[in-house]
Design a binder for these strands. Structure first.
Lengths: 354, 354
DNA sequence: CTGAAAGCGCTAACAT
DNA sequence: ATGTTAGCGCTTTCAG
């Protein structure tokens, strides 16, 4: 761990026979110091391997120019898209980003929050983990006036600013689409209904069924997590149903893909036997066969919107308190996995509206 | 941005009528301060919402207990596995992790390096971007004695510690496997040969061909990036070959999956017409049809090994300088995409060895 | 067991 | 255009 002595502005000042104030100013290109001295400063700094001390600076300035983001998982197309959107905006605005992920654990999420709090991020962006029940670990930020924005997985009840898609509508659309294809028994594979996104999608699903006079029964609802095992289990569940469902709305593309594979292995033809709609528009949907009908969830846009709002607040351009909810566009992408070949049915159904 | 006044140890000390030194000691549970005062300190700290100041502390202590990691992309199964491995080890050891990603750009990589340097990470882990040509941006770390370990995408020529798999062997194995399946014209779809991993795999491919008396020609080599477009282009390239290749070794599972889809769309049967081997063992490989034969690249293990070595060095348990190269196990996973049905050929080939 | 005090490197108000 | 100086909040000798 032998780290040789750091060179500081004192060293530069001594060497150049000027004051540390001038060095400090020169280093940040303050127009008030002469071109000549600035040049000398930069050259010497370079030569001596000077690096400015983040800590001294932050200690002095009392803010960090850093924003933190807590996500539930890195291993997801959607999340990495969000991240890239956030990053574009934050780096443009000269902010650093610290990425933390909770691995879907409320405990880790709280630890991350605490850590970012101590690191004194100027603002926080978060999407809740699977099993997060309350928002206590965000209290310190709010108490201290550090702005927090939630996206995707949020607590709708609180009065924090949230950025979401219309999960209810998406659930409704996805289900309605299956109904239009002639499905009369639609399974719903999803994750914990405690999380707003899944609860809303479920609600949309239920309402679409109801509005179309399709009966619902509890055993059509399959709640698991987002793992490969979940996909296999869901398929097994469906295979046991008598009669088989003729459609499935699965709220995650990866799970949908695994599920489809398992169904196919068991002789089910998709979409003829079971039509499938996923969620997120992950890359995998276009790779599997048949290609997966899904809801396009524009992560990058969402990331940009979240970050832009946070930074505007930080810069005093707008107040976060004025905005409670921002809804980002999303839409159904129809591919092969859901298209049944029964135009006759479609015609007969065409009176339905909205 | 109204942030109310932070409470400091001075506030606590004043309130409790003790010195800041005692508060400081108490806060870090120093055995030298009495249980009673400690308790009073903790309670008051809690009550007043005290949070310790990272910056003041780091400024004083001159090290950060933070390690940085620079990766080329987040959006990859392999990378997120590595990250989870690294994270497990670093958090166990009480270090913070700062994740930065370069989006395959040398420029962003350099910016990230500079940033982490200024943030004074105690150690650095990195996998090089696509177009990184030299390691100049890591110079400052090395000059300052901040340990740096490279993994996966590395510079083999330098004398930094590197953690890799045996890419040459993997390339050889993958190609040999195709040859065993009876392939006589094997295309190689890969990325920039400037990057060690691709160069080594290519070398393995060439040697396997040579050792098995299979001719190579330049047009079998398709160099692109790791995008969807690359996969489509690669497929188009192969379709134009006369005669068609009967095998393809593609150094990335996602690209392989896209490529297979495009080939299938053009009437090619896999593996009968063209047998395919991918690389990485991403989740997608098990989802597509036929399932993808690939090289298992154990990211999590790699992450753990990298982090463990770095931390051992930081803690003085071992010296990084003693280890130049660490090779992590990897192996071929045979699935449907490469298995041709011609046992006759296999028998005739069984004299081959090594 | 507790306190006093120096100093980590930097910024910014106030001089000059 | 440059210099002086007072902290930012904390850790850590050294003294009691």
């Amino acid at each position: 761990m032998s780290r040789q002595k750091e060179v500081t502005i004192y060293d530069l000042a001594r060497e150049l026979n000027i004051s540390i104030a001038t060095v400090s100013r020169g280093l940040k290109d303050d127009p008030v110091v002469s071109k000549k001295t600035k040049k000398r400063i930069f050259q010497l700094a370079e030569r001596m391997g000077y690096r400015y001390n983040h800590f001294a600076r932050n200690l002095r300035k009392q803010h960090t120019n850093t924003i933190g983001i807590i996500v539930h998982e890195l291993n997801s197309n959607f999340i990495t898209s969000v991240l890239s959107g956030v990053e574009r905006v934050t780096t443009d605005a000269g902010y650093d980003l610290i990425i933390a992920h909770s691995s879907e654990s409320a405990k880790k999420e709280a630890a991350n929050a605490k850590n970012l709090f101590h690191k004194r991020v100027d603002g926080l962006i978060a999407s809740l983990s699977f099993d997060t029940r309350d928002l206590e670990h965000f209290r310190p930020f709010i108490d201290r006036g550090v702005p927090v924005i939630f996206f995707d997985r949020v607590d709708e009840a609180g009065d924090n600013t949230i950025v979401v898609i219309d999960n209810y509508k998406c659930g409704y659309q996805a289900t309605e689409h299956l109904i239009h294809q002639g499905c009369k028994k639609i399974a719903h594979v999803t994750a914990s209904l405690n999380r707003n996104v899944y609860a809303q999608r479920y609600k949309g699903y239920r309402d679409a069924l109801f509005d179309n006079d399709i009966p619902f029964s509890e055993d059509l609802l399959i709640v698991r997590d987002l793992s490969e095992a979940a996909g296999i289990e869901a398929a097994m569940c469906m295979l046991k149903m008598k009669p088989l469902p003729d459609g499935a709305f699965i709220t995650n593309d990866f799970v949908a893909a695994v599920c489809m594979r398992t169904l196919k292995e068991n002789g089910i033809v998709i979409p003829d036997d079971i039509a499938v709609v996923g969620f997120n528009n992950d890359a995998v949907g276009k790779l599997i066969e048949p290609a997966l009908t899904t809801i396009n969830y524009p992560g990058r846009d969402m990331g940009e919107i979240v970050a832009r709002n946070l930074i505007n607040h930080l810069q005093g351009i707008s107040k976060l308190e004025q905005t409670k909810t921002i809804i980002v566009n999303s839409n159904l992408i129809v591919r092969k996995s859901s298209q049944k070949n029964n135009p006759g049915f479609l015609k007969q159904k065409s009176t339905r509206n909205k």
